[in-house]
Simulated assay, not measured.
Amino acid sequence: MERELQFTHIDEQGKARMVDVSDKKASERTALAYGEIYMKKAVGIGIKNQTIKKGEVLQVARIAGIMAAKKTFELIPLCHVLALTKCEIDFSWNSDQLLTAQCLTKTIGPTGVEMEALTGVNVALLTIYDMCKAMDREMRITNVCLLEKSGGKSGDFISTNQVSDE
């Protein structure tokens, strides 16, 4: 049976609205988002060796991503204010030119944390770009996606997207 598409952020008159979640049961909810940034080899080596002039790139990016996840409701229209109980951003080098980022978010509440995880990973990658753009304006942020989510009425989700393993 095909699921009927419903636009929950639009009322009967076609006006935008924030979804009322006051009747939804609070549950533990998690989300894991992913993204990649490709860069020149010299930039990757500079980040690894902490020789980028603007400072310790990955620590600044980690803090920026966490701060952004906490403020998602201020950035994305109609998102609810959520009290995150956990937000972690991890980086992994696939090569000197490819850095991956993951943002894990968690809360106990009536609505999910997917947007917070996606916002966190995006801002972390944008911060890396900002701190290193003097060395490489052709950096590419790619493959940003939701990998997993758990909790809530819709249950668990695991993406079928394949992430890079270059």
Rank of each mutant, 00 (worst) to 15 (best):
F91T: 07
I47M: 05
P77N: 01
L32D: 07
E56P: 01
T107K: 00
Y129F: 14
I52D: 11
D130C: 05
T105W: 05
T100P: 01
L99M: 03
K153D: 15
T85L: 08
Q102E: 15
C79G: 09
L32V: 13
M115T: 12
Q97M: 11
Y129E: 07
G155R: 10
N94Q: 15
M139V: 13
T85D: 10
I108W: 07
K149R: 06
C79E: 12
A83D: 14
E74F: 07
A124L: 02
L84I: 00
V57P: 09
K15V: 09
Q50E: 15
T72M: 00
D23Y: 00
G55S: 07
L82A: 03
A117V: 02
L125E: 02
C132I: 07
G14T: 02
I89N: 02
A33I: 00
A134C: 09
T111L: 04
S27Q: 15
T142Q: 13
T107C: 14
K24T: 04
A68Y: 11
C145H: 13
G65M: 06
A42P: 00
E2I: 11
L118F: 09
K70P: 01
A64H: 01
T72N: 02
F7V: 14
G14E: 03
A68P: 06
K86T: 08
T8A: 13
I66Y: 07
A69L: 07
D165K: 14
A31K: 00
L75K: 11
Y129C: 02
L104K: 12
F73M: 07
S22E: 04
E148S: 12
G109V: 03
A31G: 05
T72V: 02
I52V: 15
D130T: 10
K48A: 12
